Amino acid sequence: MGFKLLSKLLVYLTASIMAIASPLAFSVDSSGEYPTVSEIPVGEVRLYQIADGVWSHIATQSFDGAVYPSNGLIVRDGDELLLIDTAWGAKNTAALLAEIEKQIGLPVTRAVSTHFHDDRVGGVDVLRAAGVATYASPSTRRLAEVEGNEIPTHSLEGLSSSGDAVRFGPVELFYPGAAHSTDNLIVYVPSASVLYGGCAIYELSRTSAGNVADADLAEWPTSIERIQQHYPEAQFVIPGHGLPGGLDLLKHTTNVVKAHTNRSVVE
């Protein structure tokens, strides 16, 4: 069995187990497998329904001669939608809004960016022009300005110390501490036991640490421990890039980060 097929099978099995364990909360999309990078042309966006009122959005972007996937989250909030992270750029984010209108038909009224990198804030200006209120932590807003990236308009308070959590509509926002970046936030959907790890969490097929220019490698494993301790009931975990899975993604990420750190020390 090929690795790609095995990865998709694991996603399907995880979703099936969740649907059985929580039949009222989960209505997993039966329309197909989780979209992969090879299936999404740059400039297009796919939506994948995880649970009743919960979707991931998947886009792709060219970077350094390669094409990478990027995940975000959409959560229903009454007759409105909360968006977590842009679709990595203005063109993708405009396509995301169009796809949401086509498939869901509810307005996106608020959006949260989970850290300051372009795959999370690139497209904020498109959201703002569409009347979406954009939010991020003060740290993310400051770092985005320093980096020359787009800056969300509103500040999220109460997320300055490791372990801080605040309720934001249908989700809980959690600051686990520094990891992929010093400002990275985690998003949890309690009604569906869905954990969105953003770039602080890796997919299972990833074996290298990737972009760690703004990471705190020493603190990252401790931050992941905080996530595990705060959300032990999480059933569906979405990484910032690639295929979702279960809580095993947290341990896998820790292993990859520690291996990278150990290699760096040896070198």
Score class of each variant (00 low, 15 high):
Tyr202Cys: 05
Val45Ile: 08
Ile238Glu: 00
Arg141Leu: 10
Leu83Lys: 01
Thr253Cys: 01
Ala130Tyr: 13
Ile20Trp: 15
Gly123Gln: 04
Ser38Gln: 08
Ala200Cys: 04
Ala234Leu: 06
Tyr68Arg: 03
Val132His: 02
Val266Glu: 14
Ala178Leu: 06
Arg110Ile: 13
Thr222Ile: 09
Ala144Lys: 04
Ile238Gln: 01
Val194Met: 06
Gly240Met: 04
Thr140Asn: 04
Val187Ile: 11
Arg206Ala: 15
Lys91Met: 14
Ala218Met: 14
Val237Ser: 01
Pro41Phe: 09
Gly148Asn: 11
Val194Gly: 01
Glu172Met: 07
Leu249Val: 04
Glu172His: 05
Ile238Met: 09
Tyr188Thr: 00
Pro176Met: 01
Tyr48Cys: 07
Ala87His: 00
Val28Glu: 08
Val108Arg: 03
Ala59Trp: 04
Ala59Gly: 15
Ser31Asn: 10
Tyr12Ile: 09
His57Ala: 01
Ala234Asn: 02
Val75Leu: 05
Arg167Ala: 10
Gly158Pro: 07
Pro35Ile: 12
Arg142Ala: 12
Trp55Ala: 01
Glu150Phe: 02
His241Phe: 01
Arg76Tyr: 05
Lys91Tyr: 10
Ile104Phe: 06
Lys251Phe: 11
Ser113Cys: 05
Asp52Glu: 12
Leu5Trp: 13
Ser181His: 00
Leu82Val: 09
Gly43Gln: 08
Thr222Val: 10
Leu81Gly: 03
Lys4Ile: 11
Leu143Asp: 02
Val194Glu: 02
Ser155Met: 12
Ser223Cys: 03
Ala19Gln: 15
Lys8His: 06
Ser162Trp: 10
Ser161Pro: 06
Ser155Leu: 13
Gly197Ala: 14
Ala209Phe: 07
Ser223Trp: 01
Ser223Met: 01
Asn255Glu: 13
Ser7Tyr: 11
Gly43Ser: 09
Tyr12Met: 13
His57Asp: 03
Ser113Gly: 06
Trp88Cys: 01
Ala259Ile: 11
Gly210Ser: 04
Glu99Arg: 13
Tyr196Gly: 00
Ser38Lys: 06
Leu24Thr: 13
Trp55Asn: 01
Glu80Arg: 07
Gly32Val: 09
Gly169Thr: 05
Ala144His: 04
Ile227Ser: 04
Asp29Met: 08
Thr36Asn: 15
Phe168Cys: 04
Gly78Thr: 07
Ile50Ala: 05
Asp183Gln: 01
Val67Phe: 15
Asp29Tyr: 07
Ile224Cys: 01
His260Ile: 08
Phe3Tyr: 07
Val42Trp: 05
Ala94Asp: 11
Ile58Glu: 10
Phe168Glu: 03
Ser16Glu: 06
Leu10Phe: 14
